[in-house]
Write a protein that binds this DNA or RNA. Structure first.
Lengths: 134, 134
DNA sequence: CTTGCTCCTCTAGTCACTAGAGAATGTAGG
DNA sequence: CCTACATTCTCTAGTGACTAGAGGAGCAAG
């Protein structure tokens, strides 16, 4: 017998707020769970996994529609790996470019702090750095 | 004599859509530009730079309020060095944590791609990797 | 002059949540 | 068993940062 999980328990175990879970259900990202006699949602271990997956994918910056696609592919994984691979590769490019530009900005702010500690801000180049990066 | 730039030209040069430019003006991120006799907005080269900066900062995930502060910080570099230093250090922390998180995410995605070497469908572990990463 | 592009303002819609009201149901202490 | 409080329910509305569309006016080219 598998134990029932309330929406609150699911929330804390997956690290996703209760209203967000209901929102995911509303948009069809999570299936409608069975309910108790008194109309409360009951989940199982699989729901925790699915929701954890969604949370991590969101943290990675994947959009809901992409996650929806990945979940669909995961449900029948024949021939789906290449597609997921492509999705991930596309996102990796975005992440790399962000890291690059952030690092440039970091150096510039560090430079500002250094000149500030010497009692003068000769020239603020923050805007320049971000205006025409790379 | 500096040449006038229409909102459409500014849009394509900065890579920011026309309604977004008007939105930025509305929330005070861009100053209200002068207008032609027929009420059309006219910008200059400096507007292009400022807007480019905003676009890149947004792409890096900075919130509008943070960008507003950074612009202010860049505008008055001469006085109150201590305050500028504090602001800069604060921003540096944010930038550092952002780089850190992005780098972690990058490794996760790279791990996903490695686990998902094409042609070996049985070995696709992307969903698993994202469900319980680390 | 007329066709079509750009611009104006305004309202409303989008995404991915987030917050709050008000009611019912579940749980723990006394 | 009663009471107090927590959790859940549905519903509506708000957020940030845009985005799209209506309806109208100006401008430039053929």
């Amino acid at each position: 017998m598998k134990k029932d999980i309330s929406i609150g328990a699911l929330s804390s175990r997956a690290g996703v707020k209760v209203p967000t879970i209901r929102y995911y259900e509303e948009i069809g990202l999570l299936p409608e769970p069975t309910r108790t006699e008194s109309n409360r949602r009951i989940y199982d271990e699989q729901s925790v996994d699915r929701l954890c997956f969604i949370r991590h994918a969101r943290e990675l910056g994947f959009e809901i529609e992409t996650i929806r696609e990945m979940l669909a592919l995961a449900d029948k994984p024949q021939r789906s790996c290449a597609r997921v691979d492509a999705l991930a590769r596309g996102h990796l490019k975005v992440i790399d470019s962000r890291i690059e530009r952030l690092t440039a900005l970091k150096h510039e702010v560090e430079g500002m702090i250094r000149s500030c500690s010497r009692g003068r801000i000769a020239e603020c180049r923050i805007i320049e750095v971000l205006t025409h990066p790379g």
